[in-house]
Write a protein that binds this DNA or RNA. Structure first.
Lengths: 339, 339
DNA sequence: ATGAAAGCGCTAACAC
DNA sequence: GTGTTAGCGCTTTCAT
């Protein structure tokens, strides 16, 4: 900046004013300064600027690192979500500091904010770390989590209407003629628990008793899903539909059913969750519950800004919709009336 | 930091020294200071620190924004690559500033570095922006690109051995009995061009003339792939195998072939590229060329560090390997001898 | 409308 | 071993 000032024959104060578009600067001077800056490829030092104004526009986005499961980094939904966040931040000229850390480490979650690198944190997926997240929020770190609204949470959340999604999926299966619908998914995860609650809802709404023995708590890992499915098929021959709590799980399920010589949807219907683009390419094309990814980034940012402004842990729920395809029996038009 | 100093009854200089593990500090004092810092949840202000030491450990990772194609944000390979980079940076205690911008805008690509927010840039995918990338490098911005080594490039690259991959895939198809192998992919992209070169190589190595009329320049967009495939099948009935330049394209191809009543691999063999985890779940399971994602992040970082240290645009090529599955005819064991 | 000077939170000489 | 002080590059009073 000193260089620009010297070349323009003015003080750094004027350069600062000119470059930031402050009013009290003569237009011709401003143009001269801008020209010189451009020529030098000069950009204002963000660190120095932030230090002076005691403020920054960087947001820390944390993708939980799950050493146990291979769940995380092959899921296209996660990429779509991160992309949505990146776009929302870019649109509002925030910077995005990405980190992949173990969410149990409260200290590391807070570090970016406490070292003033970032003004707030977005965590993509709450997993089992409810209590740790509460601790982060208690420490005064502006925090918003993509996930489910949990009783007693002190952090902001943005997430899909998982319960509605679960209800839509299950209703679709039942109305397609299924009587014994299995649920595969790790219900110890809050989001999955809500999907399961919707599954129960749909049964009740039809005067049916949800068959709890058909709920299998398989984590996202492929091998586990296959094992649970095998045991399910062996023990419960009457089963005629499967609601998988993610598309990745559903894909594994369809593949395994095929190897077992069972046809989808003739022998068993299958519905997934997330509606990743790929499921339309499966054979059969997979019915799935779509989340509103495009809205997610903007909603997360809105919630975070509210928290920064002192709001008390707001919570936003985004709509889910059913996308009927070939893996379920009810025709797309018929399923329109579902709830 | 002043707070910590006051509570410890020492000067800020001592706190700074203690917290950074400098030698000349009495052990008991250091412990006292560390205790107080922890208690206050104090973290050193990174911005102020970087300003003072005139240096930082942040790397800008740019995911090209392609307004045209929907190519980008559903590709699991991209997420795996970003994850690999994030892990490599974390392991070496770098921060990752993620942005999703139009790579044609040279100025924005340079901004993070020129505003001293980051010390270098990693671009994930070179697309058609060879010239712009050269301009960035010429501006003195430390730059490394995930992509192909191009004649006349002045920026560092890290990428897969796409030519080898193309050769492996094509050889596998030919040795599985195919005689008219089609290539679907946008050969104007350097990486895809290399895959195509490998396709040509494999033909030559067997004394065959590569059937250039069977090369279709379809971009990653699904609709385009389907159209090209339809025209291909209509015009060239003799076609008996397809090498798709990405797994996503291959999935679309398999789906379209099925709707056209053609069987894979009996009527046509299909092989993809990237080996995303999902292709093993397809019906039939898709043969594919695997890239070394796990190595990618570390290699990119190594190259970037070399550039920062003044190296002249190094270039790293990572191995590719064929993963034979059900969509091709040659048994996995037989295919071991391929080259 | 422009400049001089103080200070954001930190580190690194230099003194003691 | 510890404190004092200058200054990183910027913004912002306060003068002029």
């Amino acid at each position: 900046m000193a260089d620009v000032a010297r070349l323009a024959g003015v003080s750094v104060a004027s350069v600062s004013r000119a470059l930031r578009g402050e009013p009290g600067v003569r237009e011709d001077l401003r143009h001269r300064i801008e020209g010189i800056a451009r020529q030098l490829h000069y950009e204002v030092d963000e660190g120095a600027r932030n230090l002076r104004i005691r403020h920054n526009r960087t947001i820390s986005v944390v993708v939980p690192h799950s050493p146990a499961a291979g769940e995380s980094l092959s899921d296209p939904f996660l990429l779509a979500l991160i992309g949505s966040i990146a776009d929302a931040l870019t649109a509002r000229s925030y910077d995005l500091l990405l980190s992949r850390i173990d969410t149990t480490q409260v200290g590391r979650l807070c570090r970016d904010v406490e070292s003033r690198r970032a003004m707030g944190v977005i965590v993509v997926g709450q997993g089992h770390h409810h209590e740790q997240l509460n601790m982060v929020a208690d420490r005064g770190v502006p925090l918003v989590v993509w996930g489910a609204h949990i009783e007693g949470r002190r952090y902001a959340t943005v997430g899909s209407d998982n319960r509605l999604g679960g209800r839509l999926a299950t209703a679709h299966l039942l109305d397609g003629g299924a009587r014994r619908v299995a649920f595969i998914g790790d219900t110890s995860l809050p989001e999955v628990a809500h999907r399961h609650a919707g599954y129960v809802d749909a049964h009740h709404a039809r005067g049916l008793l949800p068959p709890m023995e058909l709920t299998r708590p398989a984590p996202f890992v492929q091998a586990r899903v296959e094992r649970e499915l095998a045991s399910l098929l062996a023990m419960e021959p009457g089963i005629d539909a499967i609601f998988a709590s993610s598309d990745l799980t559903a894909m594994t399920v369809v593949h395994a059913l095929h190897r077992a010589g069972l046809r989808v949807p003739e022998d068993l219907q299958v519905v997934g969750f997330d509606d990743i683009p790929m499921v339309a390419q499966m054979r059969p094309a997979l019915s799935s519950v779509a989340q509103s990814v495009e809205q997610a980034g903007a909603a997360l940012l809105r919630a975070l800004e509210a928290v920064v402004d002192g709001a008390q842990a707001p919570s936003i729920v985004l709509p889910t919709t059913l996308q009927p395809r070939e893996s379920t029996r009810l025709a797309p038009c018929e399923s329109a009336r579902q709830t």
